[in-house]
Write a protein that binds this DNA or RNA. Structure first.
Lengths: 207, 207
DNA sequence: TATTTAAGTTAACGGTGTTAACATTGGCAT
DNA sequence: ATGCCAATGTTAACACCGTTAACTTAAATA
């Protein structure tokens, strides 16, 4: 449908873009369908021709965020196992720090519960898949200890997810040393925290 | 002021308790000052005698949550360094899993930004202090590698925070094996993930 | 060309947080 | 004991919000 005095012509995409800008700048709570329609020179119910409700619009924005994150993670160099693991972690945390409001929308949990928007769930899984593949590759190369893959992926994801949220919420200090912190944190996971070498009896799979 | 037909007598505390119940059951987005006043048999503006605004009420609830979490962490056995560290991690994640809505309110970030409610910030710091003290104790005992204390605390907190949020948001599977997952994750941090012993040259403080 | 259908409109419902102006009353100083 | 004051309630109103119903425009299609 072409542009007219009556028909906007390109709502949906323009609404998506404008809403994405608002979320990136002011967070998802700043999204108001009425205000959004006002900015686009259109009546509020017009948006309902393109989005089922406010939450569905937010889900679309989160999908964009996950696809964006996935591209960032895909562009990490995968030649060396250790550098790939640390690089993925750094890229993940960097994305969250550069797009804190978008990241919070993607992983808010409360505003966008899982199992409601299937395409959103899929987009999230696709992004996570990159991290999972990197870990699986490092495991197959023998770089990692023998352990269930799910344990390592859960640990790595928890670490970068937690670090991302704590830093963007201001619970961890030092904005300038953030990347150093992220590198130290991921390295610490790989090397272990305890002083005694893990040779004696802390492998629970081979007692 | 005593109870009367006109004066409620115990608003503030009853509002706090009722709101806390609602948040625990349905999340912070279910808190409506008008509905809350309705349930307490009082007019909506009456609540403004006791809470500056909706956000301040939520901040009070979050403070309760942090004090609760702190008590849970304080009751962890501290005799053995390793068991103390793992126990703190398990208690932390268990709290988040048992009170997911309250935990999300405490660490939402978007609904309760840091630096706005000083008493809330202090309550959060007090809870975090328990984890920090446990790590400092283990470090002084020589159980941990020599490293900046801030690095270890940031890593540990990131790990349990991320694991908490990922599980309560349904991003990690298996509700029944959650505690096993939490234990595996924390152990993995202590022992390290890589197969080769960390003897060669991965201490960045002593090159 | 006639008709269906996609995409916009206005009007309205019920809900929200919040403020202003006013009413009640317990507790304290005289 | 009494009179005042501050604490704590009240109602009315403002400016929003998401959402739906009923209607209009105009593009696409048969």
């Amino acid at each position: 449908m072409a542009r007219t005095a009556y028909h906007h012509g390109d709502l949906q995409q323009q609404a998506h873009q404008q809403a994405l800008d608002i979320v990136r700048e002011h967070g998802d709570s700043a999204i108001s369908l009425r205000a959004l329609a006002r900015q686009l020179g259109v009546s509020a119910p017009a948006l309902y021709r393109h989005f089922a409700d406010r939450e569905s619009l937010l889900a679309e924005l989160a999908i964009s965020g996950f696809e964006w994150l996935r591209q960032r993670l895909l562009s990490v160099d995968q030649s060396d196992s250790r550098q790939a693991l640390i690089g993925i972690g750094l890229a993940y945390v960097a994305f969250a720090q550069q797009e804190p409001n978008l990241y919070r929308l993607m992983f808010g949990g409360r505003v966008l519960p899982q199992g409601v928007h299937p395409r959103l769930d899929e987009a999230g899984k696709n992004a996570f898949q990159v991290l999972e593949d990197t870990i699986a590759s490092a495991s197959e190369c023998g770089y990692l200890k023998p352990m269930p893959l799910a344990l390592m992926t859960a640990t790595a994801w928890s670490l970068v997810h937690g670090l991302s949220l704590l830093t963007i919420d201001g619970h961890l200090p030092a904005a300038d040393t953030e990347s150093h912190l992220a590198e130290g944190v991921t390295s610490l996971l790989l090397d272990g925290a305890i002083a005694t070498p893990p040779n004696s009896k802390n492998n629970e799979d081979t007692p």
